[in-house]
Design a protein around this nucleic acid. Structure first.
Lengths: 243, 243
DNA sequence: ACCTGAACACCGTTCAAGT
DNA sequence: ACCTGAACACCGTTCAAGT
């Protein structure tokens, strides 16, 4: 049998296993079935292989999950839109990175919580910009646009907090219900909970249901950019010592 | 044998099991050993009981984790500092809630990621203020201080994004290394990674290591309060339709 | 060189049985 | 009424063995 490279049928084998193929399959599996359903045995079976074969390429399940996170961030790091050279100024750069990370989160809503919560390798590495490449690139770009060292680091901290809060909440809202639930609800009506005793929630139910994630994100990002501009021009986030 | 209520020895039994005791024990266990180590069997054994007994009080492990999150938020909800009546104005209220949630996060750094990432019961319920009681209380308080319905909901969204981003990153920085690592490092020196190729990170290593979480949190909170004040006085976060 | 069978020490969860 | 023993269908991971 000649192995085909275009065969994507579940359980199909196409060439030898590789670390790259294992990680790609893991991302695909989580996207399709959710993190809790990912087991070494099931992942192996989608690759047409036994679980033990995976251990030639990752050192265990935890390492696999870390590698998944790393792969997603490395892909984005290589994307032309987020290259520092592509940006007109630091605002443009931050908008590009923000939208790039957001796109990753929206493309992989089931994986993003992993980006947010896998324990970072060092305490100063802040999700979601959690690779040395990203941090180096970020700091270099800010400095090249007039941010001092302290301001660049403060900007890194503020920017990552902003991204994490907004994107984690945005993907949480898109999270599919846990488990193989009865999806047989007939109409589009929300199965409204019993809101007796919660009159304000009931009154504002329409507003609460509105999906404003995109405008929220954009508006909060612009606010952050104004704040960073102020920081750059003298004020500090963390009260620089009056040496 | 007369059961004692003050006995806290591991494996001790004190009176009959109850849902409350199970949940309390779970919080304590996660605080002490981390979430991955929490199993139904091990939790049961700290209560001097077999795993199967837990199923009389929670419907399974997932339900236990949801209940843990709920318990933490209910405790805070009852705290005198965060009662709407205790606050002088809406700014004071938001500062009290922000600091209250932050204290919960710092007291239970291993549990807080659960508050952030357990799938909420409805898409409009936003961690970390993820109970109907909290949402109702928040919306009522904002409205009573001159926020309109849309502004109150926008404030809820902006406030939760702020809390989640900052607190998740703050507890991530405090996360103990995974597993029973060799903690036998002799001196206080950070085991500095090899930073060849990352000159900016190397140059700013000191700043990156500085723990500025408290000032960051306070400064970002004050910025949010200014933004919300602007919103209250006419501007909207989400571009109200020009009906 | 690459993959597997069989085994080990666990899981969560069920159910009929004990006291 | 409350807890348990034994069992089931899984896990992640190891290691010697297959091809």
């Amino acid at each position: 049998v000649i192995p085909t490279t275009s065969d994507t049928v579940s359980g199909a084998r196409r060439g030898p296993l590789s670390r790259h193929r294992v990680v790609r399959a893991a991302i695909h599996y989580i996207d399709a079935h959710g993190l809790p359903d990912l087991t070494m045995r099931r992942l192996a079976s989608t690759l047409g292989v036994e679980a033990m074969s995976l251990y030639k390429h990752v050192s265990g399940r935890d390492n696999l999950l870390d590698t998944v996170v790393e792969a997603l961030l490395d892909d984005l790091y290589g994307h032309p839109d987020v290259q520092p050279e592509a940006a007109r100024d630091w605002r443009d750069y931050l908008r590009r990175v923000a939208n790039g990370v957001r796109q990753v989160a929206l493309d992989h809503p089931q994986v993003f919580p992993l980006v947010a919560t896998r324990p970072p390798a060092a305490p100063w590495i802040r999700p979601p910009l959690r690779s040395l490449n990203w941090i180096e690139s970020f700091l270099r770009t800010m400095e090249s646009h007039g941010f001092g060292e302290r301001q660049s680091v403060d900007a890194y901290k503020a920017f990552t907090s902003f991204l994490l809060g907004h994107l984690l909440l945005e993907v949480a809202g898109r999270q599919v219900a846990i488990g193989p639930e009865e999806t047989s609800r007939v109409d589009g009506e929300t199965p409204r909970a019993d809101l007796r005793g919660y009159p304000h929630i009931r009154d504002m139910a329409g507003l609460l249901h509105e999906d404003t994630a995109s405008t929220e994100f954009a508006s909060s990002l612009e606010n952050l950019l104004r704040r960073l501009a102020t920081m750059r021009d003298g004020a500090t986030l963390t009260e620089a010592p009056v040496q």
